[in-house]
Design a protein around this nucleic acid. Structure first.
Lengths: 129, 129
DNA sequence: AACATGAATAGAAGAACGTCAATACAACCT
DNA sequence: AGGTTGTATTGACGTTCTTCTATTCATGTT
């Protein structure tokens, strides 16, 4: 049970099958899973709290849970979904577990949404300055 | 029944209640609704097809439906969700209905995701060039 | 006016989701 | 070793979502 799920996205994506259609089925499934993780108010607020922390430090779950009027298992569940989507990473430090943002993934989504008129195809992640 | 739903987002958002927390509850609900609309492979592909078209022309539903192995009502339903999220606009031209992208909304999401370490707060829409 | 075609709506069935209470696991501290 | 605190997992319940078939609405044509 100590299996750590792999993130859905590989930012170094090697295209699935760039046929003719823009955004192939495979990529659509992959991206939709990430957007679905963002499609909940609690998870969005969690992510914003996590993103607000210093990247290398991370945020303790013990700081996140009391920010919501939800049970601790519910918060834990949402954090798990964010992690499975690849949006955050997590690590245990002593008694506490810390979560941090993975900007590669959010950047990928941002670059995808930023130029919708252009290419929605596979994009080898943003190489922003 | 001829009521045209209003998009969820008003890009000229007048802040709900910028308290202390990053991304207030209200904004989280609002944004999550948009991300949820993106959280389905079919809708993502629909959006990419719509985005690929010339902005002022739009895409006919009659071109979108045969691109999927789904029933016509199902496609119609997904298009409705994209429209309710404010991601696309639609218009009837004679026998056919056309859909087009609303870049203001996708741009807003992009700018939100692009700088997660910075401010997730209310953002008066991107004022791109 | 009747008909044909494109698109939206209504209603239903099954799967997936969000939440909780209860429990299990992990690490620290006597 | 036993107890305490922080976090994750399990199982259940009600809601929401995706999809379908059947039907209705809208427009254009004969």
């Amino acid at each position: 049970m100590s299996k750590q799920e792999l993130p859905i996205v590989q930012t170094t994506s090697c295209c699935t099958s760039p046929q003719s259609a823009p955004l192939g089925e495979g990529q659509a499934v992959e991206l939709a899973a990430i957007f679905k993780a963002l499609g909940d108010p609690v998870r969005l607020r969690l992510l914003s709290l996590i993103a607000a922390a210093e990247a290398d430090k991370g945020v303790c779950v013990c700081e996140l849970t009391p920010a919501f009027e939800l049970s601790q298992p519910t918060i834990s569940h949402h954090l798990k979904l964010l992690r499975q989507a690849g949006l955050v990473g997590s690590e245990r430090r002593g008694t506490w577990v810390y979560y941090w943002l993975r900007p590669e993934v959010t950047d990928r989504l941002a670059s995808l949404l930023a130029r919708p008129a252009n290419e929605w195809q596979a994009e080898p992640a943003a190489q922003a300055s």
